[in-house]
Design a protein around this nucleic acid. Structure first.
Ligand SMILES: [Mn+2]
Ligand SMILES: [Mn+2]
Ligand SMILES: [Mn+2]
Ligand SMILES: [Mn+2]
Lengths: 135, 135
DNA sequence: CATAAAAGTTAGCCTAGGCTAATATATTTA
DNA sequence: TAAATATATTAGCCTAGGCTAACTTTTATG
């Protein structure tokens, strides 16, 4: 197939950066989601949610603390900071729009859930606005 | 925004796996592209193409060799294996469809180039088929 | 309330994917 | 062709994000 687009180191670097943001966005979204049902959000909840070991969650939560997205003391519940809360809500809106857009163009539910989980981190606000208008 | 989708550890793991495939797909696509203009594809070409150091390219090419996507001897040109060639062509087709679909729904060229660089690795063949039919 | 079970933490291991600096080989050019 | 320049490789460093195993703390239960 003929290539109709240009590539640039900037595009590759952007995509890598979005991949790095993925874990932050997915974690705050998960924390927000879990806290709707439970008073406390613990390590073990996230471990089940993501299907990774509690040691991994422990390490990743430290990164979120460093990124000022959550607060947590040893053995205590995890709480979103206001930055974290904002990122959680924005990420959820983005994820919902991508998911609904895929459904709209005819993608089955399961596949739309799969695809949107990754795609959501690579959609500009410009494209998102268009998708929203087409839902 | 109300959540209308379900999440699952499987979806998160899939997205991470797609992120890991990203480097392989982008590299074989780049090698194929560069070899259209030049007889030999060297380390330095990829270094410029991706904007990363030649040491990084050297290390990553070793991974592609391990994955049977390319062959290369010390100080010589890089060549795609038949697996590598197939992956390169498939990846390019996928990338083109995503790019053209974005253009079709009204995304400006630069933004479509940015978005498609990441999105292309997170699109199922089902969704791809729909996008193709809508171009 | 003592103990068992569950959950959290830490240490140490791994691979991926970046980097710089030093060294080795190829290529160009005076 | 000898020297200078360009390119390739290697070593060693870093962070992210996984894991298991051992240990600590909290929570539940007999
Ligand atoms: Mn999400
Ligand atoms: Mn996601
Ligand atoms: Mn591509
Ligand atoms: Mn790409």
């Amino acid at each position: 197939m003929k290539k109709t687009r240009f590539s640039s180191p900037k595009y590759f670097k952007l995509s890598k950066k979005q991949n790095a943001n993925e874990i932050l966005e997915d974690y705050v979204e998960a924390i927000e989601e879990i806290s709707k049902d439970k008073k406390d959000v613990k390590n073990i909840d996230l471990s089940k949610y993501f299907g990774v070991s509690k040691a991994t969650i422990n390490k990743n939560i430290k990164r979120l603390i460093k990124a000022k997205l959550v607060t947590s003391e040893k053995y205590k519940s995890i709480h979103l900071t206001s930055n974290g809360k904002t990122l959680a809500l924005d990420s959820n809106v983005r994820h919902e729009i991508v998911f609904k857009f895929l459904r709209k163009i005819g993608v089955p539910k399961k596949i739309a859930e799969e695809d949107s989980e990754g795609m959501e981190h690579h959609i500009s606000s410009y494209t998102l606005k268009i998708m929203k208008s087409l839902i």
